[in-house]
């Protein structure tokens, strides 16, 4: 552990001499920077997606969880009586904050998208709706159903679980996909940096053999490469993250219509996750280059 920490600090503090021992290679350096930057850019979007779906799942869950609906399907002459009875039952049910029968105007508004605005609601046998607001603790839906069955035979309770579950499930899956995308991005970054490091190690085989000849340990040689690739990945990913955040900020702001894509921004503390993108890239590069160097060096004499 101690050795690992000193390795990590060496990456950032650096050893100017060890650095000079391996000649700089402009082309691989630029490619590594670009690859790390592009991957960080994608990671920002995956992160944004994952967080937005997380927020969406929570919002849907919260809004639907706090309300439910009671539908009274009774012959017209019994409707008012049953509605009153149902309201009485609801008032005495623990866990219900408020219950209110929707007015005809409200019911008409709900139906308007389907039947047009001029529907004569009062002449149709439309069930009466009662909106229920729950307290934080919520109520016992099964118990309420039993009581309603006894006292208000025409009442059907809908506590929205039916709606909530698939919505939350979908949002949860989306979030999982976002996480998976980040893992894949990290894996692809590791693969690309491994390839780049292998190329650099192969290109510098002569230098490595000279260093071995004069008594350099593997760890010394590896350090020169690891430091280089770790810094490149870090800088590239930092640039890519900045560009990615810029692109996310350029998206239209979230609107009331509940647009899904427009809610992609980073809010509050979740922005801190962005800092982790370049750090993760650096860690991935550190591990990948270290492994590549150890493997290559152990094959040489």
């Amino acid at each position: 552990m101690k050795a690992l920490l000193s390795d990590i600090s060496a990456v950032f503090v650096g050893d100017a001499q060890a650095d000079r021992v391996v000649p700089p290679t402009g082309f691989t350096a630029r490619l590594t920077l670009f690859a790390a930057g592009a991957m960080a850019f994608l990671a920002v979007f995956a992160l944004a997606l994952s967080m937005a779906s997380g927020r969406l799942a929570q919002r849907w869950g919260d809004e639907l969880a706090q309300s439910s609906t009671l539908r009274i399907s009774a012959p017209v002459e019994q409707r008012d009586a049953q509605t009153a009875a149902a309201l009485r039952v609801l008032e005495t049910t623990p866990g219900i904050a408020a219950a209110r029968a929707l007015s005809d105007a409200e019911q008409r508004a709900l139906l308007a998208p389907w039947f047009g605005p001029d529907l004569p609601v009062e002449n149709l046998p439309i069930p009466q709706l009662i909106a229920i607001e729950e307290t934080e603790a919520g109520y016992d839906a099964d118990g309420l159903r039993l009581r309603l069955q006894a006292e208000v035979p025409g009442a059907i309770l809908d506590d929205h679980t039916r709606w909530r579950k698939p919505l939350q499930q979908a949002a949860g899956r989306l979030r999982l996909l976002g996480g998976l995308a980040i893992v894949l991005i990290a894996a692809v970054t590791a693969a690309m940096i491994t390839l780049a490091a292998n190329a650099a190690l192969a290109a510098n085989a002569k230098i490595i053999s000279v260093l071995r000849l004069v008594g350099a340990r593997d760890s010394y040689i590896a350090k020169a490469f690891v430091r280089r690739f770790t810094l490149r990945a870090f800088l590239g990913a930092a640039g890519g993250t900045v560009l990615g955040v810029g692109a996310v900020l350029l998206l239209p702001a979230a609107q009331d219509q509940g647009g899904f894509l427009t809610g992609l921004g980073f809010q509050g503390l979740s922005a801190l996750w962005l800092v982790l993108v370049p750090l993760l890239a650096a860690i991935v590069a550190f591990v990948a280059t270290g492994a590549a160097a150890r493997r290559t060096l152990s094959e040489l004499r």
Partner: peptide, 24 residues
């Protein structure tokens, strides 16, 4: 491999083709 590195520090070798780092 580290033992070899340590040994090389106690044995100075003049390589036939010299073996330098050409960029330094």
């Amino acid at each position: 491999r580290d033992d070899h590195a340590t040994t090389r520090r106690r044995i100075g070798v003049v390589h036939q083709d010299c073996a330098f780092l050409d960029h330094l």
